[in-house]
């Protein structure tokens, strides 16, 4: 058994194709981007080696840390939202009538591209014609906020479509994991007189713990490098109030000709994400891996 499963040729055969592809198409660009980070380069003319200067500037750049803080807030809320998605998945995966249809309906918005989602939420948030403010005014609110214009609100306002956009993704994963639990285990618990809540908490949750941990990492990593809706809906504004790390990096590299500095920020983004991920993995580490 061990001999077969530790055959070096076989391992190479199974791992190398993916590893080579990722190595060439992700790690080489990553290395190059770290290298550009050492340059004073506008991306157009000649580049000049300036050592760690860009990285030092970044560490002192308040705009960068503001954007990093915004990204961390998003990561925090994304992680929290997983609880809701998990609860919904539990309901959908239980044997209630119509669950199958409901699940499909719930996941439909996930199919929409960011272009569509951005347009939809721009219409929701429009200060005078928007759905949200029309509803608020109908409820008697005199001066409903300008959601995307107010620097104190814009960040939280824009989190809503971002979290909503990913709901389907996590529900899909949790659903598959929950459906993977052998029916016999749940039946046994029912016979022992466990309530649905007890079954969810004592049996289902521990059994999909591995999947939950993975989704926590995905939520954090995805949030820290998030870009799409921020860029389309607010462009990071007003005056940087909704800037996140990736949008800041994009602006530097593509709009303001600080390509070297932008690359350095991009690399820092990765380092920060890596550190956070390692910490999270350590915190959620479990000694034994569960098997059914």
């Amino acid at each position: 058994m061990n001999k077969v499963m530790s055959n070096k040729w076989m391992i190479a055969f199974y791992v190398l194709p993916a590893l080579i592809l990722v190595g060439i198409l992700i790690f080489i660009p990553l290395g190059l981007s770290a290298y550009y980070g050492l340059m004073d380069w506008n991306g157009i003319g000649d580049m000049e080696f300036i050592g760690m200067e860009n990285y030092i500037t970044a560490v002192q750049d308040m705009k960068f840390w503001d954007s990093a803080f915004h990204s961390f807030l998003l990561a925090f809320f994304s992680t929290l939202s997983l609880i809701v998605y998990l609860a919904i998945s539990m309901i959908l995966a239980s044997k209630i009538k119509g669950a199958d249809l409901l699940r499909k309906i719930y996941l439909i918005p996930m199919l929409l591209s960011s272009v569509a989602i951005a347009q939809l939420w721009i219409k929701v948030f429009n200060p005078s014609n928007g759905i949200l403010n029309k509803m608020l005014m109908g409820l008697g609110v005199d001066n409903p906020p300008a959601w995307l214009a107010n620097p104190d609100i814009v960040l939280y306002a824009i989190f809503i479509p971002i979290l909503w956009q990913y709901a389907g993704f996590y529900i899909l994963i949790y659903y598959a994991a929950l459906k993977n639990i052998p029916e016999s285990l749940i039946e046994a618990a029912k016979i022992d007189g466990a309530s649905p809540l007890q079954i969810a908490y004592r049996i289902k949750l521990p059994l999909i713990a591995g999947v939950v941990k993975v989704t926590i990492v995905l939520a954090i990593v995805g949030s820290l490098k998030y870009f799409d809706l921020i860029y389309v809906m607010t462009g990071g504004g007003p005056n940087g109030a909704s800037e996140v790390m990736a949008s800041y990096m994009y602006k530097l590299a593509f709009s303001t000709n600080d390509f070297g500095y932008g690359s350095a920020i991009g690399f820092l983004l990765l380092v920060i994400t890596l550190i956070v991920t390692v910490i999270v993995r350590k915190l959620t580490a479990d000694k034994e891996e569960l098997q059914y």
């Binding site: 791992v15 993916a18 590893l19 990722v22 190595g23 060439i24 198409l25 992700i26 790690f27 080489i28 660009p29 990553l30 190059l32 981007s33 550009y36 991306g43 990492v217 995905l218 990593v221 820290l224 490098k225 870009f227 790390m245 990736a246 990096m249 994009y250 590299a253 593509f254 390509f259 690359s263 991009g266 690399f267 983004l269 990765l270 994400t273 890596l274 991920t277």
Partner: peptide, 23 residues
């Protein structure tokens, strides 16, 4: 190796796009 794949998860695409184009 698993760690390497996970790092691959973290790269922002706008960092990658110009090196990739070059390659």
């Amino acid at each position: 190796v698993l760690g390497l794949f996970m790092v691959g998860l973290m790269i922002p695409i706008h960092s990658a796009i110009i090196p990739l184009f070059n390659m």
